[in-house]
Nucleic acid binder design. Structure first.
Length: 352
DNA sequence: TCTGGGGTCCTAGGACCC
DNA sequence: TCTGGGGTCCTAGGACCC
């Protein structure tokens, strides 16, 4: 065996449910559904996750809690508790950083790890043991030449396993699968590809990138082809991610029709977004308002601020002005306020 | 199964300027 | 009066991901 660079993808198994069960061991073995405020009778709330016992009754994440309650009346319903997941995630990432490897955090329950070794399986097994010992949480580890391969490999490793997916076995493992098995191709693009006669990863890999560019644009078309070949980024970025923007939105249990009430909600959302931005020391350059009308028609309007701001009153005024450009002639089920942050100027460093 | 909340990136078209 | 080509900024929407 020779020493070389590997990318590992570490993916916690059933992260949210696992954290909840750590705190409530008495619920182990019972069907548990986590979502919203934990009230399964409240409409327009969906499950963030469900344990295997709940899944056995047909409950799935993304399913309305009321449906989950009907399918599994004995389930325990718990509210989501983001700070608890944040704290558990911190401990997992700290455990990973203790390894002689580079760690790129990818959300609460995932990380990419770059390491130079002659035995990636041994490293993966050591990571699984350490995470379990330090946090009580199970994870799966994918091994690849790049992030795309490692990410798919961790999915194939689940639950609680290790899988290696590299250029060597890519065709054997992936070619027979549908195109939406690739990380970055979802249901919509998969359907459009099928319309062009491209159903499997093998067929997409054999397609003409120029032809794909004509159908999907100059960036996306060739990128889909690239994914089918098993290519992907292999650079581990250890510096913390700088968020591009931020948003807050609320779906109402009952539709809103009163204009004054709608404006009050938008103002409140703007205030929260401004407070979040201030807490992160970020400057706001653009504001967008999102309105979802009943039954489910979503529209957005945005405006670039004349002057970048950190001021809550300023942002609220701008958000209300954007709201004023909507025709609020139908009942409203969701309101959202999103902002873009000023980014540190990268254009100078990007030039040759 | 009437469909959450929080993100990122890409595309297309229009305005405006030279 | 009719018209080119390029560049940039902005907006709205769509697709994907967790």
């Amino acid at each position: 065996m020779s020493t070389r660079d590997w990318i590992l993808h570490v993916d916690l198994d059933q992260f949210i449910a696992a954290v909840e069960l750590l705190r409530r061991p008495e619920l182990r073995g019972r069907p548990v559904v986590v979502g919203g405020s934990g009230d399964p009778t409240r409409p327009r709330t969906v499950a963030a996750t469900a344990t295997y016992e709940a899944r056995a009754h047909g409950v799935r994440s993304g399913m309305p809690l009321r449906t989950a309650l009907r399918l599994c009346p004995d389930a325990v319903f718990l509210p989501t508790d983001p700070p608890a997941y944040e704290a558990a995630s911190e401990r997992v990432m700290a455990t990973l950083r203790a390894f002689p490897a580079e760690v790129e955090v990818w959300g609460w329950d995932e990380a990419f790890v770059g390491a130079r070794t002659d035995d990636p399986e041994a490293l993966a097994a050591a990571i699984r043991r350490a995470v379990l010992a330090e946090t009580g949480l199970s994870c799966s580890v994918g091994i690849g030449d790049n992030k795309h391969q490692a990410k798919l490999a961790s999915g194939l490793a689940k639950p609680a396993g290790v899988f290696r997916l590299t250029g060597e076995n890519w065709a054997e493992v992936m070619y027979r699968r549908p195109t939406d098995a690739l990380w970055g191709i979802g249901a919509k693009i998969s359907r459009r590809l099928a319309g062009l006669g491209l159903r499997t990863v093998a067929e997409l890999a054999a397609a003409d990138p120029a032809e794909l560019a004509r159908h999907f644009g100059p960036t996306n078309g060739p990128w889909y082809h690239w994914l089918a070949l098993g290519k992907g980024e292999a650079e581990i970025v250890t510096t913390p991610w700088v968020p591009r923007g931020h948003s807050r939105e609320t779906t109402f249990a009952a539709d809103l029709t009163d204009g004054t009430e709608i404006a009050a909600h938008v103002a409140a959302l703007a205030g929260r977004v401004a407070a979040d931005a201030a807490a992160g020391n970020r400057v706001i350059v653009r504001v967008a308002v999102k309105v979802r009308f009943a039954p489910f028609l979503t529209r957005t309007r945005q405006s670039t601020l004349p002057v970048p701001t950190t001021d809550a009153a300023e942002l609220t005024r701008a958000a209300l002005a954007v709201l004023g450009r909507f025709d609020l002639d139908r009942p409203v089920r969701l309101l959202g306020v999103a902002v873009d942050y000023a980014m540190p100027d990268q254009s100078r460093t990007a030039l040759p």
